[in-house]
Nucleic acid binder design. Sequence first.
DNA 1: CAAAAACAGTTGTAGTTACAACTATTGCTT
DNA 2: AAGCAATAGTTGTAACTACAACTGTTTTTG
Lengths: 171, 171
Amino acid sequence: MEQATAGKALDDIVSAERSRGGGDHARSAHGDAWGALTRTHAAIVQRLQEMLSAADFPPLPWYEVLATVAEAPQEQMRMGDLAEALVITRGGLTKLVDRLVKAGLLERTFCETDRRVSYATLTPGGRDLLAEMRPAVIAELEVAFSANLSVAQANELRQTLDSVRGSACAS
Amino acid sequence: MEQATAGKALDDIVSAERSRGGGDHARSAHGDAWGALTRTHAAIVQRLQEMLSAADFPPLPWYEVLATVAEAPQEQMRMGDLAEALVITRGGLTKLVDRLVKAGLLERTFCETDRRVSYATLTPGGRDLLAEMRPAVIAELEVAFSANLSVAQANELRQTLDSVRGSACAS
DNA sequence: CAAAAACAGTTGTAGTTACAACTATTGCTT
DNA sequence: AAGCAATAGTTGTAACTACAACTGTTTTTG
């Protein structure tokens, strides 16, 4: 693997910098929280991708699509809603779904009453693959989170993040 | 802007699904925390990118490089350490730094004692641009975080995330 | 009801990224 | 000291993504 394997060096540098009271660019608590958020997110994504490729599973975005569609009523979702849920562009989603359709994991279905909309619908193959992948992903997340976080702390974390997102999305 | 603007629809679906006790695929607290983490991260990244492009600033990865290098001693950093801090591949960093060098924001310097290593070093132009961008980024983060989070909560959030990353990086 | 505006999704293109193979330098082994 | 392994960084290629322009459908409006 060519993936960079972690990020502790920067923290040392930053905290050293801060403790010697040096920089004229003191950072805010919120900025620090943002830094921790990005780095933690990237580290976990990296860990998941590493695990998936080692297990010969499709990449993480595929899993996210399958997991999201599977949770929707009737295992189908409008393209626009799916793009919004995954926080990617609609153009990008079109091509991502194309690949999943070609792999037989999704199929496109259409709306009778509004012929503009199309749905991404889970196929049996997609459902099966998701059932295979989910335990592996959950397990990986468990070791990442559960080692240092109780369930209560995890819930608190989720709540905090959701509230932040709520205000971040106040478009 | 073609960016998807938020993600509340999915939450509704998920919570509806959960409250009617329907799915045979109950999710764990840690899985929920992960979902909140990804979505919040993506939403804030989106918000920042939108702001930067509206203000005719370079994209977010450029800012992250500049900000990271600026915090290092002597405003310079080894390529490998920089890649690790940004949690991207070294190959990707090479080309990213290429672009920043071409824009006059960084320059490559070399190590006397070990001729393998090269440093990314901040130029005056890079320092100036960072000084322009930083307030804008900080302000954007303030509105995203500060609306729903006290400083104490932000610190707690940072601490929680750091501890998660600590175990996630136990390679 | 016809024209215009809004909406849902796709396509074309360019920029960015990751992955793997490669070069060059240093450290280790005997 | 010669040879082998490990390290630092770059490069080539393929895949992915965003952005903008486009087609087709529905809704609004004059």
